[in-house]
Write a protein that binds this DNA or RNA. Structure first.
Lengths: 170, 170
DNA sequence: CTTGGAAAGTCAACAAGGCTGACATAAGCT
DNA sequence: AGCTTATGTCAGCCTTGTTGACTTTCCAAG
């Protein structure tokens, strides 16, 4: 059960990192790490009666101010009804502002208000703090590998969104 | 806004990988990668009218056959009512067997049936396939770094469970 | 041998956050 | 004028998490 079929037919090079056992460890590491990844923001959100869905919306509006609802939908990969519920709540609470588009008046452009920005700060400070500790503990080379593997794991569509956000532009 | 305060007060060494910008990219990479990570199993589960919660239970029962309900609760980090609903369903459907403990007859020891094992295979095959592709694309050094950062990101409790599972024993 | 407490199961109620389907409105495009 | 797009909204459903209350079973300490 330990070493999978993939390792059996390996060539001379060391492909032991591709054994089923190694892959399984990676899978479990993803599971446990993601729990840690969301733990700190989750605690903060509870105090504000928000959930992860609100966090995601806030994060990406902060990240790409003026983004449209449609763009946000594509990034988050949920239905507009799901997003709308969250967005309506954030707008009513005065964390997000929705401005009608100039060129295309059908579009709504989303911005964080001062209060929205404050919560975003609080959330991302907490999340970055854990990330920073993990990065520091693992070192720069490990971080580079971490990023490489994560990027390779994404669906192509998601990778497009990711690199578009990462490489500067809205 | 680009480079965070953490980078300002850095020493002579290159700590640029700890800038807020780099950390934010890592955070977004986790978000997008986790979506890919769960995408393939999610598709399979839909055909069987199960959800991610069922997958998690099946995964860890496969991983530690004979585990008790309490142990599973600690690993999954949910309430017993939540787990029980999922578990009852899996037992009724004949994917999981619940045996009364020998030493302590209050405990239930959980095992996958042949059918449960078949579904586990199908799910983990799909998930491993994506993982394998990502590992192969990134290379062994990147994978080592990936694992290091993930482990550093876990809560200590979760890291305990992780290493206990990874280092062999039930 | 009794009793306290742990392990497990169950019921009920609820909330967040996904989903689908249907429909309305406004605006852009042909 | 008519089709399409972007958005919002209503209603209803599902999964999966929560809390609280309660029961049964059973180990173990007094």
């Amino acid at each position: 059960m330990a070493e999978g079929a993939s390792a059996v037919a390996q060539s001379g090079e060391s492909l032991l990192f591709l054994t089923d056992e190694q892959l399984r460890k990676g899978i479990e590491a993803m599971f446990f790490a993601y729990r840690g990844f969301t733990a700190d923001p989750d605690r903060i959100l509870q105090d504000h009666a928000y959930g992860r869905a609100h966090h995601r919306a806030i994060h990406f509006i902060h990240r790409a101010p003026g983004t449209t609802v449609n763009n946000l939908l594509a990034i988050l990969g949920v239905t507009k009804q799901s997003l709308n519920r969250v967005l309506r709540c954030l707008i009513e609470d005065g964390l997000v502002e929705s401005r009608v588009g100039n060129r295309d008046k059908r579009e709504r452009h989303l911005y964080l208000t001062a209060r929205g920005d404050a919560l975003e700060q609080q959330l991302s400070d907490a999340q970055r703090e854990r990330m920073r500790a993990a990065y520091r503990a693992a070192g720069p080379e490990a971080v580079a590998g971490f990023r490489q593997v994560l990027e390779a794991m994404m669906d192509p569509d998601m990778r497009r969104h990711f690199t578009r956000l990462a490489d500067g532009g809205v």
